[in-house]
Computed example of a mutant assay.
Amino acid sequence: MAISRFSDLLEEARRQPEPQRLLFVFTRAELPDHPTEAQRRRFERGEGGVLTPVLCVDKAPEELSDMAGLLTESRRTGVDWDIVFVGALAGHGHEAPSDEQVEAQLERMVESLKMGSVEAFLALDRQGEAVRLG
């Protein structure tokens, strides 16, 4: 199944035989350190910039109903974001992934994103639509 929106992601995660944890790393677009004038102009038009991780959370698919619910929950943190990257971690048998496994995977996701490695993750905008970066 091609995942092109948040609802597709939830549907696919719920279909998996093993318990799933969805891992979310919320990022905010910012100007890079020491931007050129061209980079600054592009950023002011809403283009370019670097995506900086600002918030992480994990959820079971059953804890989520739709993108509006995720948006509402994220607003309660007071942290602004532009793009959310999503990964998944499967449990084994009927066991959900442990808190330690989830935390370690979230840390790996953040490090990957800081290094610019975004290909392994689904990127969604605030409307829950998949976006292509690069």
Rank of each mutant, 00 (worst) to 15 (best):
E103I: 12
F85V: 06
A96M: 13
D80N: 11
V50A: 07
V84K: 01
E107L: 14
M109I: 03
G134M: 07
V54C: 06
E63G: 08
E111P: 03
H94G: 12
L70F: 02
P35D: 12
G93I: 07
L71Q: 13
R5E: 10
A60L: 11
L22M: 05
A104P: 05
V86P: 01
D125P: 05
A120Q: 13
C56P: 00
R108Q: 05
A96E: 15
A104R: 08
Q127E: 14
L89N: 01
L133S: 14
S7L: 09
D33A: 12
L51S: 02
L89P: 01
E129T: 15
G134Y: 11
W81L: 00
L122A: 08
V110I: 02
D99F: 01
E129H: 15
H94V: 11
A60V: 12
T27R: 10
R76N: 04
Q16F: 04
G69S: 08
L64W: 02
E47Y: 07
V50T: 15
R42P: 05
L9G: 01
D99E: 13
V79K: 12
A60M: 15
L51I: 06
L71K: 09
I3H: 08
G87S: 03
Q39L: 15
A88K: 14
S74R: 00
P32G: 09
Q127V: 07
L31W: 05
L106C: 07
G91E: 08
V118K: 14
A96L: 12
E119T: 11
S117A: 06
S74Q: 01
R108H: 04
Q127F: 12
